[in-house]
């Protein structure tokens, strides 16, 4: 499999949100605006790439029975690094994303890719997989955030195009579920069919 194919797979065929349906908590919780969704996606992508690289490099040395705890420690280390860096250099984004940054640890995507891909592939391929899945996740989150922002606040990427509020429900919890549900329907109808 070529590296490009691996990356493309992560974006469409194995899209973590719409095809694999993994990592739903941050997908719903942080997509109140396109920027927030994008920020969360990038943070997750960083953790994914780094943990994929490290795990594929050390997987050979880890006894099978302590596999999962070892992966969790490695992943949570990178999550904490992201957390500290964000706090230092992007404090306002850190505040908005809040609790969901440490929760990247239990994002099933990261552990899932470690188990399903990184521990049986080379470092290079694993990095590409992390990048592809990460891009797919970022893209999905940005799209969901954008739709919710347009409908709910009448703005796109923070730029307001109508005065006043949009349909508030879309910024609130119910809107998250409903927007994701309908986007998934569209994905099933148009994208998944082509594959």
């Amino acid at each position: 499999m070529s590296k490009l194919k691996i990356i493309a797979n992560g974006i469409i065929k194995d899209n973590p949100t719409f095809a694999l349906v993994l990592g739903m908590c941050p997908t719903l919780g942080t997509t109140t605006s396109a920027i927030n969704g994008f920020g969360m996606g990038v943070a997750t992508m960083f953790v994914l790439i780094m943990s994929n690289i490290v795990i594929s490099a050390v997987a050979r040395f880890i006894p099978n029975k302590v596999r999962i705890p070892s992966y969790i420690v490695i992943i949570s280390t990178f999550v904490t690094i992201v957390q500290l860096l964000m706090q230092a250099y992007l404090p306002s984004l850190y505040e908005t994303l809040g609790l969901f940054i440490p929760l990247i640890v239990v994002n099933c995507i990261v552990l899932g890719r470690a188990e399903a891909f990184a521990n049986k592939n080379t470092v290079g391929d694993s990095a590409c997989d992390g990048l592809g899945i990460g891009l797919g996740f970022t893209l999905s989150l940005t799209v969901i955030g954008l739709v919710r922002e347009i409908l709910g606040s009448g703005s796109a990427f923070g730029l307001k195009f109508i005065s006043g509020d949009g349909v508030l429900a879309f910024v609130l919890a119910p809107g998250a579920f409903i927007v994701l549900g309908y986007l998934m329907v569209l994905f099933n109808k148009f994208v998944a069919k082509k594959e």
Binding site: R60, N64, T77, T80
Partner: peptide, 29 residues
């Protein structure tokens, strides 16, 4: 593939990982 899951191996590997990770975090912190 993976190393044998003897008790000694498991303790060493997990201990080592924890040590390296916390050292790395201390640096970043």
């Amino acid at each position: 593939m993976a190393k044998e899951s003897t008790f000694k191996n498991m303790v060493i590997v997990l201990g080592l990982i924890c040590l390296i990770c916390s050292a790395l975090l201390a640096v970043v912190y």
